[in-house]
Design a protein around this nucleic acid. Sequence first.
DNA 1: CATGAATGAGTTTTCATTCAT
DNA 2: TATGAATGAAAACTCATTCAT
Lengths: 207, 207, 207, 207
Amino acid sequence: MSTPAIPTASEKTPDRKAERRQAIVTTAARLFAVKGYANCEMESVAAEHGVAKGTLYLYFKSKQELFCACVDQGMRELQETVQAAAEGEAAPFDRISAAIRAYLLFFERHPEQVELLIQERAFFHDRQAPTYFTYREQSRERWRAVWTGLVEDGSIRPDLNVDQILDFIGNLVYGTMFTNHFLGRSAEEQYEGIMDIFYRGIRNSQT
Amino acid sequence: MSTPAIPTASEKTPDRKAERRQAIVTTAARLFAVKGYANCEMESVAAEHGVAKGTLYLYFKSKQELFCACVDQGMRELQETVQAAAEGEAAPFDRISAAIRAYLLFFERHPEQVELLIQERAFFHDRQAPTYFTYREQSRERWRAVWTGLVEDGSIRPDLNVDQILDFIGNLVYGTMFTNHFLGRSAEEQYEGIMDIFYRGIRNSQT
Amino acid sequence: MSTPAIPTASEKTPDRKAERRQAIVTTAARLFAVKGYANCEMESVAAEHGVAKGTLYLYFKSKQELFCACVDQGMRELQETVQAAAEGEAAPFDRISAAIRAYLLFFERHPEQVELLIQERAFFHDRQAPTYFTYREQSRERWRAVWTGLVEDGSIRPDLNVDQILDFIGNLVYGTMFTNHFLGRSAEEQYEGIMDIFYRGIRNSQT
Amino acid sequence: MSTPAIPTASEKTPDRKAERRQAIVTTAARLFAVKGYANCEMESVAAEHGVAKGTLYLYFKSKQELFCACVDQGMRELQETVQAAAEGEAAPFDRISAAIRAYLLFFERHPEQVELLIQERAFFHDRQAPTYFTYREQSRERWRAVWTGLVEDGSIRPDLNVDQILDFIGNLVYGTMFTNHFLGRSAEEQYEGIMDIFYRGIRNSQT
DNA sequence: CATGAATGAGTTTTCATTCAT
DNA sequence: TATGAATGAAAACTCATTCAT
């Protein structure tokens, strides 16, 4: 993992290339989100990034590949952010809460990623599965263990199964994320209320 | 409401026109959903409908207008479907459950409408508010009364407020609808589990 | 030439038809002039005239034929107007002056005819000779006799020939007519000055 | 005026671009004149010039802009040609005669420019003033001084004013130019006769 | 590596004309 | 005769991609 103090020629080049790619992706993601995939010309990405159009093709085979790199990078960052937040907590419920909070905050801070998810589906639904759901699937497996533990130690209603819970919370945060984006709602404000209902339901159990 | 046996010229024409429009919208909605707005040429809509390209322009000023008519019709049908389902029940909780079930089933039976919502956002986000949220807002107001009743009669946890609940359930079904669509999940199967957690939460209250 | 008091069926119809044609031409001429041939749709002519699009095709085989009828009618009216003015005068020079004045005034009162001449050339120059020049040629022959008389009676410089004069005056009024139209000049004001130079030249013969 | 042996990058590019534009304009002017603006597709201009359609749009924003460039270039060349001819003469009357001759010869050698003037008016009369009259106005001011001199030194009939003369000659050459073009008349042949009548009138002053 | 001029396939929209009623 | 719904050819313009420099 550690970079040699004096990078050899063979290493330096790919590093540079990766950095350049990275930088282009950041520029492109913003532009794709703002203008939409169709209205965002390679020309404008190049101009915004301060390079020539042809240069983009040195780093990405096509417009679609550039776009996919944007979505991919976004999902990778989402995952890292959520993961990091969860790792800051020890207790299972706290990890879960932290993860959900981080998820909602991530999209609030990166609204372009919400748009990118929509654009991806709109333009490439006949060609590929939504990247989001690929990541969601991976994530699901990691969290399954946590929930299984909570079920086993009796923290969760015994009549619920883990898949049901994973689906529920997955759909809930997914829908909340979109709504927050479209309606300009703040994640921080909603977060507590959401978790409260998720944990305890809406019904008055006293009755 | 009854049509005269011999319709006058002034009535017959608009009727025909409206029917034709309607029929074109149905064809177009399916094609827009399958091919995506960008890849769905007016030519192909016309061909699919068995008319000439120019004919479409007798009924819709532009491709965008045709598309918007598709989204609008879908949202109108959604609303009617959900409304009808709710009206079949008397008890508040039953009305709510029926509405949610009808909502999820509607999109399962009309997967093209899910795609249309995505396409609309992807292509026209700088030009208009998502039609879905316009309808959601209207719907929200109708349901507020129901929930307020439930809060007042003590059926709902007294520490929850109606807006919080409306947001929660709105986001939940929105997210569930998309997930079902993308992952091919069946609404009927999920529905019970979702309502259960929504009403009672996930935590074991025995503890 | 006289119309029977009770027109027979065979005569009435063509008359009506001719009247209708006439009326359509008047409407069309104005619209062609204002919007230009290309931007003036048959639809708009029909609407402006208060008939259906298809009706126009009962009177004119095509858009081009309708247009040509407009130009033709205009040129015919020009000729009649000029002729009538000339016939009101007895002396040759007076006839000439009156004709020229009538010509310039005709186009001032019928600016649409100026536009029509331009449109005709612009759209149909590869298909036909300008109608204006057809009429000009006819007219030329009629006026040749007048000028020949003036040459023979010594009213005209003996070193000039009739063709030279006919060309000169023809070009002069043609150019003046266009300029008046484009620059909004009034024919009445210019007329005297033009004739003066035409008759006497610009040079000071005293010197 | 001399080009550096080794042109710098900053100079070379705009030069090339200007040259290319120039060349395209020449090709386009001819085609617009022959086929007419409406019937002259960008495709055919490109083909005729040996480039692809898209290339034209690198140099001109639209078909209209290309067309206007053609008219503009023509009028600029006309002005230069006439100016140059006038500058070759010293005496005022000779300058005037030379200018008029050059004007008529220019359009005889560039018949496409006559067509372009017509096309411009036919297609863009609601959008812009005819370019010809813009140039005519400029020219008029330059010639006013010459005519004023002639009036003051008594070469011109004292009862004429300069504007009247400028209008007359302007209209005369304008009309003559069109007639020559439409009827295939030769400028060289007509020129002497025109000037003769312009200077001395048609009437026999002996009488 | 970087550039940016050149390419040309592809799509929306218009509108003259037809023809069944 | 009159209508106006239907047709489909035609053309401007865009922009992803290539490649010579």
